[in-house]
């Protein structure tokens, strides 16, 4: 389904996986797509978000605050906010002391390598195609993916954007305007 994606939009999809991994999340959700759009290149998506004052660090904090309520176990998401990669700490301690060396009790299985997209994130990617078709564009850029996020409307992405004080209807107009001027 990525044939019509621009290089930038492809890079954003890859980046979404990196964002999920960095936060030690098990699936790629709309929130990771949103971060990726903001952090990838100078496409309509990133431009529109920046123009509304959206900040990646602020978004990450909001996401971690919602997704990862602190528990009793080692808090990989909180450690990640300090730049500490818990999986790496685990790896080096297990290399010296054997499997489970760092565990107090049971340990959550972590998923190495490939992280799957959530159903909603997949839906967003489909909707980005529909948005491109609707606007008469034959390519899908980060702006179309952002429109897809807004259209889907139910994921964590629109929630954190709204929390951050962004009006989605206005953002939608901004992106559409940028895309039209790009296409002209």
């Amino acid at each position: 389904m990525f044939e019509r994606f621009t290089n930038e939009a492809r890079a954003a999809v890859v980046r979404a996986q990196e964002e999920a991994r960095r936060l030690h999340h098990q699936v790629i959700g709309t929130e990771h797509l949103l971060l990726a759009i903001l952090e990838t290149g100078e496409g309509a998506g990133a431009q529109a978000l920046r123009a509304r004052g959206v900040d990646a660090a602020d978004l990450r904090r909001r996401i971690v605050g919602i997704v990862d309520p602190p528990g009793d176990d080692l808090d990989s998401a909180a450690l990640a906010t300090l730049g500490i990669d818990l999986e790496e700490v685990r790896r080096v301690t297990e290399a010296s002391f054997g499997p489970g060396a760092l565990d107090a009790r049971g340990r959550k299985p972590t998923r190495p390598g490939h992280i799957p997209f959530s159903k909603r994130a997949k839906k967003v990617l489909e909707l980005s195609l529909r948005e491109a078709v609707r606007l008469g564009h034959n390519h899908i850029g980060t702006g179309h993916v952002l429109l897809g996020l807004i259209r889907e409307g139910e994921g964590l992405a629109p929630l954190v954007l709204t929390d951050a004080g962004v009006d989605l209807a206005t953002l939608r107009e901004d992106v559409t305007r940028l895309l039209s001027s790009e296409a002209a």
Binding site: R22, A57, R61, P70, L74, D75, A78, T81, L82, G83
Partner: peptide, 26 residues
């Protein structure tokens, strides 16, 4: 990592305190 550390050691107490707790447990 460095960028994240600077982000997270900023002013939001909920995130900052939680990071301290996580570090202590580790």
């Amino acid at each position: 990592g460095v960028q994240l550390a600077q982000e997270a050691s900023s002013r939001d107490p909920a995130i900052g305190l939680r990071a301290v707790r996580a570090l202590r447990e580790l």
